[in-house]
Design a protein around this nucleic acid. Structure first.
Lengths: 334, 334
DNA sequence: TTGTAAGCGTTATCAC
DNA sequence: GTGATAACGCTTACAA
């Protein structure tokens, strides 16, 4: 690989001049610029971004930490972040945290140690305090799909509580009064907020929360099956079911059908996220739209604005979820 | 951020010694090691991997280029690569190529310029020649889900032709003789190979390929709808349909049903890939299993073996697809 | 406008 | 074992 030094030799100018034409900012005469460009071409020169980064302590890249690399949810999130940043000429460095505190921290350290100009985090296991501490460091952090009170300026989040409320209310409005809930892991902020929304809607309709109609699972399809198995084992009838996400809704529906229920006649189910396969599920899933892709884009715009001083007009920090009515819910059968 | 220099000061040793205890290889007395470790802890020292990389011209990270960050296919692939590498203590740097030659090259250059120890590529637009040329450079390359003859040692691929053959044969074996095909973009290697397999199966059953029963689309759901719209507009009946991937199969099935066909009675459809939602499609999709996750893991093992000299036993370079029979295909109706 | 030279935070090659 | 010190490839004052 050719270095800047060889280019400078060939072009008969100094290192500094080569650096200048690369970075385009400082003034260089057209004549010398031509010489340098020519030399670069001849040598097939490519700047070593590691060296650039070390010398300038900038990276021209943004770190992105997500919990997983697979799954519709993260895929859309990453794609949103990447496309916005890429069109601004920035690269992203992706790594994972697997919702495990230790791994999340390790991932963050990796990104920081790579001199990222900023890092965008989707973290679920580390505490708010840790993030606040982290934000005092020299690498700016941005948080996606989570709201940290003291870091509000850096957060792009969804009003999950509202989502849980809307999901539950949609069932209440259809006449259901016995509504079960399979929530996500309660140590996860979004899972908890969704569940809070469920309780608020119930309260608003003067229905007292019934512990026997609640189950907390793991956001996976199998968790949904377990959840409904548990609920059906209780001696409590229910005609509506609110799930913490679409995967669990799918698992629950499959299990319910296997147990002889017909859907949505015997049980109305509503999911959360509106991941891509929600409309493939049979019956098509009524769910809450979680605009992850948009949120990803917005997080990218936020870093563009705050870090690279681009003029982004529309920064929206808190997104509102909305109800998507499909075929898995219906008026209560009496 | 503390540097190695501050650690050396605090521990009252030289830079070199600190570096030695970090890298663990050279001999350091237990006493000094303790001192250094203590100093590191006190300062909360983290090595700057950019500087390490520049000095050692190694990166302890592997570049990964995929076409997209979203979608079940790439999600599984990335997850496979990452999990294998992560458990070997290596980080990955992910970037995208969007199946566009220019962007693929730019992505590759980005990864090379980041001093990756090796790069794993899923590229569709660049030519075999370009890859061969690239492989002569100092960064080792590995290719996933594509077979390049002169780079066979570095490739992890799927026998797509066999997949196309199996898909088509499954229909032939069910008695179908008029079998249409909605293939992927023919400039993509895998799409073409799958189509080749389709033709081979037909030939084996003495059925001549009919151009009117063929459509080439874009691997997306909408492409599937367009495809079947086109096919149904021809005056050629067909009772079987082979699709280049599951997305297109889904699009085609939806469209067919909207046009009043009942599935699988009027039309047997087989997909390709067995992405996660294949079993959500109604009727559940018969398809070809494409073990992308496994292939991702294998690519990772290959770099582990070739680059880091770990002892990986089982390197399998060419994967065989297999047929997954579900409910979207059935014996021909007469 | 162009050149000189001092870093950036490590690793690695020598001596001691 | 340990310590100087020269790279690594580039950026960036400061001079000229």
């Amino acid at each position: 690989m050719a270095t800047i030094y060889q280019v400078s030799e060939l072009a008969k100018v100094s290192l500094a001049t080569v650096s200048r034409v690369m970075n385009g900012n400082a003034k260089v005469s057209d004549k010398t610029r031509e010489k340098v460009l020519l030399a670069m071409k001849e040598l097939g020169y490519r700047p070593n971004s590691i060296a650039q980064s070390l010398a300038s302590s900038r990276g021209n890249s943004i770190g992105l930490l997500v919990s997983e690399l697979h799954g519709a949810f993260f895929g859309e999130m990453m794609a949103g972040v990447e496309s916005e940043l890429r069109s601004a000429g920035k690269h992203i460095i992706v790594t994972t945290g697997h919702s495990i505190e230790e791994k999340e921290k390790e991932g963050i350290e990796f990104l920081i140690s790579r001199n990222c100009d900023a890092i965008i985090l989707h973290v679920e296991a580390v505490s708010d305090e840790y993030l606040e501490e982290l934000s005092k460091g020299k690498t700016p952090i941005f948080i996606i799909s989570r709201y940290v009170e003291n870091l509000a300026e850096q957060c792009i989040s969804l009003d999950n509580e509202l989502g849980g409320y809307l999901a539950t209310k949609s069932l209440l409005d259809l006449g259901h009064t016995d509504i079960a809930c399979i929530a996500g892991p309660q140590y996860k902020f979004d899972a908890k907020a969704r569940f809070d929304g469920y309780k608020r809607a119930l309260a608003e309709y003067n229905i007292t929360f019934n512990e026997e109609l609640f189950y907390s699972a793991d956001f996976k399809e199998t968790g949904g099956s377990e959840g409904i198995a548990h609920l059906m084992a209780q001696q409590q009838k229910f005609t509506g079911l609110v799930c913490g996400n679409d995967e669990m809704a799918s698992g629950a529906m499959n299990f319910a059908r296997e147990r002889g229920l017909s859907l949505p006649e015997d049980l109305s189910v509503v999911g959360f996220d509106d991941v891509i396969f929600a409309r493939y599920i049979h019956p098509k899933l009524t769910t809450i739209l979680n605009p992850v892709n948009e949120m990803g884009r917005m997080a990218a715009k936020l870093v563009l604005k705050q870090i690279y001083q681009t003029k982004e007009q529309t920064i929206q920090q808190v997104f509102k979820p909305s109800l998507i009515v499909r075929e898995s819910t219906q008026l209560i059968n009496r």
